[in-house]
Design a protein around this nucleic acid. Structure first.
Lengths: 156, 156
DNA sequence: ACAATAACTTGCAATATGCAAGTTGAAATT
DNA sequence: AATTTCAACTTGCATATTGCAAGTTATTGT
């Protein structure tokens, strides 16, 4: 079998030990953070969901990015207990920790884009209750992860 | 003359009106934020400086990214008053506003990379004095920009 | 058994990247 | 005034990544 994607054998050589560079090597492209965004803010969790996101990622790129994100420990893949032909992708804690990065990108995007589609409620909380918003989002994700880890433990 | 890079005529079609996507379309690649980092934290300001950064950007990519960043209003290019064969690249306010994004990426990178090279002083301030650190960095950048805008006004 | 559906893979053209070498224009040197 | 130097790019080209369309595989539901 051919070695492709980010398998251990095709390890990318890291360009430097700067943390910015480290981050960019894991998610510095036009798609990875959109997938993380969909998981953080839109509760999307399976392949088809991501495919229907408004940016229209193509299926081969999606497969590749999911593999990379999983390989880098940002997401985890589970069989869907309620539908055996589906899989559920969830953020790990490492992936969940990208929330502050995403939030700052959203603030910047809102400030400099003429036309942003952000629900007023989220916009308000970004301005006046960012800590509460972070906590709430994190809790929601953790709950989902815990629920699935349990159900998965029961199934296996 | 051929139209290349991000000239108005080759305008990229935007994939969606999400602010995360907006951000990614302007700096979602492996190099742009490294240049911004060099300007924010390392006081680099000319072509040769960026070329010698540890990640070894190649010269055509650097030229391309500087043009993009300038075209998108994140940086500005000035003739160097002290050396007429040099140019000085400085962040605009729009570029400077990426500081919080970069800082969150640094926090994440420090947390998840085994081997990060971050001066202890910066690491400490990230933890205990992030607001002060932001203010200080911003002031330094603004001062430089103002100084150059004045000198430039005098020269032209 | 047969069609439908979710999650991918494959083929291939178009685009972007990385490396080496070349060009340009201002300044200093001869 | 001609020549060299140097910073800032451009160009050519091989390789890698992307994007689009179509195909494959493994469950299910009928």
């Amino acid at each position: 079998m051919q070695v492709k994607y980010n398998s251990p054998m095709s390890e990318k050589t890291t360009r430097s030990s700067c943390p910015v560079n480290f981050s960019l090597e894991l998610f510095g492209d036009k798609w990875s953070l959109l997938i993380v965004r969909d998981m953080l803010f839109r509760q999307l969790q399976n392949y088809g969901d991501f495919l229907s996101s408004p940016e229209r990622i193509s299926t081969n790129i999606l497969a590749n990015r999911l593999k990379q994100l999983e390989g880098n420990g940002l997401i985890q893949k589970f069989p869907d207990p309620s539908d055996r032909k589906k899989y559920i992708y969830l953020l790990t804690e490492k992936g969940e920790d990208l929330l502050p990065v995403l939030l700052e990108m959203i603030r910047w995007g809102i400030k400099y884009s003429d036309k942003t589609a952000v629900p007023q409620e989220i916009r308000r909380r970004l301005e006046s209750d960012i800590d509460g918003f972070i906590k709430e989002t994190r809790t929601a994700i953790r709950d989902k992860r815990d629920a699935l880890l349990n159900s998965h433990a029961l199934v296996t």
